[in-house]
């Protein structure tokens, strides 16, 4: 049983990372209808920024808060410079542009920080809470707590603030929002910054565990996309639940199902994507889309 619980805990830890990046994807999708394939690379980049602040001598918490704020600004900048011009173009154009962004960010990070992995300083103290023979590391507890805090803050933002209300309005209907005086462009810009920051949180808290290199978030992105699809592309709550679920399930599948083994682990989220799309395309908690002429 030790193995089982240990796998579940490891699953929750990595699942929290998937969930954070999935949240970022969902926020952008909900407010703009586009899926940012560069979300993972942006998160990776933020982790490098935090690393750099720390390397310059700042304390780790200060470094990561500064990095998240920097990312917020960078996210808005990227939206204004790169995505705004193609915002109303075809879906394909937008996908291609985010792929271009993906290639570019990856290459720049490699250029600046190199391709060798770097040790990211521990954010939480070392050690673990022992329950019987099962050890729960402080890092695992910390990452999970951060996820809950982010989800809670997001909920509060959407429910209780004006900008949150505006974002929900834009997500619901862009034209109508514009008519009632919402500054749609500004809302989208803030939404992008917010999503980038959430992704940054995911990247930064993933870095001590995964070790930092330009390809750190490549596969995490796939898991995050699977989480977003599974939970419902427009449901933040769905993204959180799905992220955790996928983290746990892939670990248990890898640990117990011989055929899957650890070889085909990556296939687990892909099968989840396929299954969801086939049987419930809107995801667990997403809204159903009804095409209109």
């Amino acid at each position: 049983m030790t193995k089982f619980f240990q796998l579940v805990i490891a699953g929750i830890e990595i699942g929290s990372i998937y969930a954070l990046v999935a949240l970022a994807i969902v926020i952008i999708y909900a407010s703009t209808g586009l899926k940012n394939l560069a979300q993972g690379e942006m998160a990776m980049f933020s982790a490098f920024i935090a690393y750099q602040f720390h390397a310059w001598g700042l304390g780790i918490w200060l470094a990561l808060i500064l990095a998240i704020l920097t990312t917020f600004v960078l996210g808005m900048g990227v939206q204004q410079v790169v995505l705004k011009p193609v915002q109303d173009s075809s879906l394909l154009t937008v996908v291609i542009v985010t792929l271009g962004l993906f290639l570019g960010l990856n290459s720049v990070a490699g250029f600046i920080w190199g391709y060798m992995m770097l040790a990211f300083p521990a954010i939480f103290p070392e050690g673990a809470v022992e329950i019987g023979s099962v050890g729960i590391s402080y890092a695992a507890i910390g990452v999970f707590a951060v996820l809950l805090a982010c989800a809670g803050a997001l909920f509060a933002l959407f429910q209780f603030t004006k900008i949150g209300l505006a974002m929900r309005a834009v997500a619901y209907n862009k034209e109508t929002s514009m008519l009632v005086g919402v500054q749609v462009n500004r809302v989208i810009m803030v939404g992008f910054g917010l999503a980038a920051s959430l992704g940054a949180v995911g990247g930064i808290f993933a870095a001590p565990k995964l070790f930092l290199d330009p390809f750190m978030m490549l596969t995490v992105l796939i898991y995050a996309l699977a989480s977003a699809a599974f939970g419902g592309l427009d449901s933040p709550l769905g993204a959180v639940i799905a992220g955790l679920f996928i983290g746990v399930i892939e670990n248990l599948a890898g640990g117990y199902i011989g055929f899957i083994g650890s070889d085909l682990k990556i296939v687990v989220p892909l099968v989840i994507i396929l299954g969801t799309l086939l049987f419930r395309p809107q995801g667990l908690l997403g809204r159903k889309y009804i095409p209109r002429v």
């Binding site: 193995k3 240990q6 796998l7 490891a10 699953g11 830890e13 990595i14 990372i17 993933a206 565990k209 995964l210 390809f215 750190m216 490549l218 596969t219 995490v220 898991y223 892939e250 670990n251 890898g254 640990g255 083994g261 650890s262 070889d263 682990k265 990556i266």
Partner: peptide, 18 residues
């Protein structure tokens, strides 16, 4: 236990080996 290059991490494999 095996892993594929590109996997995010190997903690599941390590738990099984432990």
């Amino acid at each position: 236990e095996t892993y594929a290059s590109g996997d995010p991490d190997v903690s599941q494999q390590m738990i099984s080996l432990a």
